[in-house]
């Protein structure tokens, strides 16, 4: 089938090495710097609070938004993290997830709103999201290393790439699902498009948008092990060293830690849905 040779590999390498890094290098450095300090700051907060206090906070929050069962599970789960001596790693993973989710929300929700309001934006955004979700994550790990080096920052970036699509998609869907007659009524009374968004569309789309945020958090957690391959600290790196040393026990201990965090975050964010 090789009627001609497509030098995609060479082109890509030339593009990245000869143009992208020299030209936009400082830009990426700046972004990397910002993400890096955000990451450090959150990590600092999570580690400076004594585990006991943080556990109490999480359990109380879980009780408040999701009930007794989830509170009990959170307590047991966090006790487990401490007992297998993975508290610090758990907090590192959480920090990466928080930063990545924060970026996903800050960038994803406005794009979702925009594509709900404009068909042409939606036509462009949709294939990009498909691409972000289906491209094997290893593929963008490589440029992430080139552009941001090793460690937490490229991990945040690749987690962001993988986890943002549901946030955009469900924001778009949520706004499009707002009943047409309600939007029409709001228009008839003289709403500007900003008032329409803030007072009608976003409140009515909120449950769907929250489902998107929840999905984003779940996807971010599922990237923990892959992100560890580019040097992200945390539970993922425990699992990774379990794999490389064929240490089943270590892999399970780290893996269970990720599951515990996933379930706690999932139940709490689901519980955050507005009452109306």
């Amino acid at each position: 089938m090789n009627y001609f040779y497509l030098p995609l590999e060479e082109w890509t390498n030339d593009f990245v090495n000869d143009w992208l890094i020299p030209t936009l290098g400082p830009f990426f450095d700046a972004i990397g710097g910002m993400i890096g300090s955000l990451l450090e700051w959150i990590n600092w907060i999570l580690t400076v609070i004594p585990p006991e206090i943080l556990t109490i906070i999480v359990v109380a929050l879980a009780w408040y938004v999701a009930g007794k069962g989830v509170a009990l599970f959170s307590l047991i789960g966090l006790l487990y993290l401490g007992s297998v001596d993975l508290w610090a790693e758990g907090m590192q993973t959480l920090a990466i997830i928080f930063v990545a989710t924060f970026l996903s929300i800050v960038i994803g929700i406005p794009i979702g709103i925009w594509s709900a309001k404009s068909e042409s934006v939606q036509r462009i955004v949709r294939p990009v999201l498909d691409f972000m979700q289906t491209l094997p994550s290893f593929v963008y790990l490589i440029p992430a290393i080139l552009l941001f080096g090793l460690g937490g920052v490229p991990a945040v970036i690749s987690t962001f790439v993988f986890a943002t699509p549901p946030c955009v998609r469900l924001t778009n869907l949520g706004i499009r699902q707002v009943p047409g007659d309600v939007v029409e009524a709001a228009r008839a009374f003289g709403s500007t498009s900003g008032q329409m968004l803030v007072k009608v569309q976003l409140p009515l789309a909120l449950p769907t948008i929250m489902a998107g945020v929840n999905q984003t958090i779940m996807l971010a957690l599922s990237m923990a092990v892959i992100a560890a391959m580019i040097g992200a600290p945390g539970l993922g790196s425990i699992v990774l060293s379990g794999i490389s040393s064929v240490n089943v026990g270590l892999g399970l201990v780290g893996g269970l830690g990720i599951v515990v965090l996933a379930i706690i975050l999932d139940r709490i964010t689901q519980g955050l849905k507005p009452e109306r």
Binding site: D181, V182, E184, A185, A186, A188, G190, P203
Partner: peptide, 18 residues
């Protein structure tokens, strides 16, 4: 004009559920 002069009532009520 819509704000000052034109009130409207709809067949399916179209109230804001939230």
């Amino acid at each position: 004009t819509r704000r000052a002069k034109l009130g409207m009532v709809f067949q399916r009520f179209a109230l804001l559920p939230h």
